[in-house]
Design a protein around this nucleic acid. Structure first.
Lengths: 186, 186
DNA sequence: GTCTATAGCCCGATAGAC
DNA sequence: GTCTATCGGGCTATAGAC
């Protein structure tokens, strides 16, 4: 958000290394299950070094999730601009499938950890995006049928990013199969 | 495992109170996010009292999950006894839907916490049940299509137990809608 | 069966030298 | 930018009085 005064060394490449290491560990142990100690050790440095790049652990989590949340925001913006409720819903569904495939491990992260839900509520703009996505998928007057269907869809997509059985599947195969399932549901 | 010499007071009713309190807290904060302190406080006692009933936290977790895992074992036993691959798969699917509805909050627990996966691997018998369930659903020669479909199904069912939007739905409505979704998928 | 008290560990985060 | 060292606190788990 705020453009930080350029540090002496090149760009935020130190931050990027931390984010990558954190993502690897989050994917295995979850967010709460990953300590700064573990991140530091996997980089061969100490905890204190990481605190030079990030001021809190939460700042690392938001940095890890940022790309997926940004893509989600773009997707919602795009879908909302379409004319007709069905077209908007279809754009939301196919966009979600695409997002899950592109950010597989990140979505797997959103799956479980209660820490995520707490963190999301702290950033109201993200809550707004999720609500708008809900409107696209469910319409403004949700029925039990649409609610259950969309929970099945969302949950299934999330788990598909997480499932170790599916990591070997190429992106295009996974995308095609997920689309088939999604279309069968809606 | 080892049958403990019967305590002076009636049966394991102290254990049951702990299990109920733990389930309530696990559902909100996750397993790793719930400390013995929190469980003790919600019961109005101290941590040490709980250690009179359970020797470790993991023992509490297994006690909480036991009913659902037992139901799952029964379901797999029953389905495997049927003649014909399709009949077995159908029994597995409908049985799963039923199990999710009956043990909603428990299933929500299985959803997220990586601690669960680690714990499950420690008990090989549970792993065996999951593998047998996989065979029922996927057949012995899984294809990408069946793999993705079953991940969508399993993930969707889990999230349906977890989703706060759906807790207000009566059991029979939820069961009917989940069955409709499941049949649409397979 | 419940209590107080505490051991021993790891956590996130900070201070300050280099 | 990385280090050592440490603080304050929460955690699981145990010891022992009542």
């Amino acid at each position: 958000m705020i453009p930080i005064a350029r540090p002496v060394s090149r760009r935020g490449e130190g931050r990027e290394r931390v984010v990558q290491a954190a993502l690897d560990l989050f994917a295995v142990h979850g967010i709460s299950g990953t300590s700064l100690q573990m991140i530091a050790e996997s980089l061969g440095v100490t905890k204190a070094s990481i605190y030079f790049q990030f001021r809190t652990k939460e700042e690392i989590v938001t940095a890890v999730l940022a790309p997926a949340l940004e893509s989600l925001g773009d997707l919602v913006d795009r879908a909302e601009g379409l004319p007709g409720e069905e077209a908007r819903r279809d754009a939301a569904v196919t966009g979600l499938v695409d997002l899950v495939v592109r950010h597989r491990r990140l979505v797997a992260l959103l799956r479980g950890d209660p820490a995520i839900a707490i963190m999301m509520k702290a950033h109201e703009d993200h809550v707004g995006v999720v609500d708008r996505l809900g409107n696209l998928l469910l319409g403004t007057h949700p029925t039990p049928q649409t609610q259950v269907t969309m929970t099945m869809l969302g949950g299934g997509l999330m788990m598909s990013g997480a499932d170790p059985e599916l990591v070997g599947l190429p992106d295009d195969v996974l995308r095609a199969e997920l689309l088939r399932c999604a279309r069968a549901l809606v």
